[in-house]
Design a protein around this nucleic acid. Sequence first.
DNA 1: CATACAATGATACATTGATACAATTTGAAA
DNA 2: TTTCAAATTGTATCAATGTATCATTGTATG
Lengths: 136, 136
Amino acid sequence: MSERTGFQLDFRSGEPIYEQIVDEIRRRITGGQLRPGDQLPTVRQMALELRVNFNTVARAYRILDEAGIISTQQGRGTYILEADDAQAMQRLRAVTLEDLAEDFVREAKRLGFSLAETEQMFCNLVNRLKKDSGSS
Amino acid sequence: MSERTGFQLDFRSGEPIYEQIVDEIRRRITGGQLRPGDQLPTVRQMALELRVNFNTVARAYRILDEAGIISTQQGRGTYILEADDAQAMQRLRAVTLEDLAEDFVREAKRLGFSLAETEQMFCNLVNRLKKDSGSS
DNA sequence: CATACAATGATACATTGATACAATTTGAAA
DNA sequence: TTTCAAATTGTATCAATGTATCATTGTATG
């Protein structure tokens, strides 16, 4: 008995599979069949049901995760988030980059680091990241 | 009241849980909230508080143990170690600050800011702070 | 026909969870 | 005091889960 979701995919519709999965999950949350806290099937379980590669399911999950609708965690699984969380995420996006930078400097200062130390460490890190992205 | 540590984990940050635990302990040692000789909660206690698997806490402890920062002993528990020498303490401070910088960059990236934007914002802030301290 | 690009598949990997185990402490009985 | 079983604590191993990277396929587009 692996018929757990009852998802119906249309392989001929032209709409990408991962998008159909995203839409269907959205519909089920809106309709109340899926509720906050519910665990979704693992990417491999759902892929097995839908006769699809699990990467395709993973792609759908990732999109929903970035939208703040579900939470995917490596080694744990994926869960429906509270609607509040999505709103909270929206509010968090309103946090400016300046706020983040100030938090960083403030926390460093609290731990006893001088501004010069903090600046140097940050610049070192940035230079390292620039190199890594360029060498790929 | 099992709220003993007050650790705040972010399950959606993308930073692995065990790494968040490692970072937080490093910060508390650097900041002086944790001192040599202090006993950390058992892996199971802390796991209960943080709602994670105790293996995840054990992994964090093992990393800190291998770094010579804490001492974990089967059957006894885990304790904060005395820094071997000034160099070890310097290394801990450096790593702590580096973690802080990485968190900053990661969070900025998660909010959609490019590395260049993040760098510029930070440098602007630093320059402003330098001026302010000079004009006082 | 060739090329570019998006979608999907294959594979290796990192993180977390479940379970059994070993070392140490504790406490009661002898 | 000694002994020893039970509880407590960290360790080791493997399974389960999502992630990252690249290859393959199919489909527009020139």
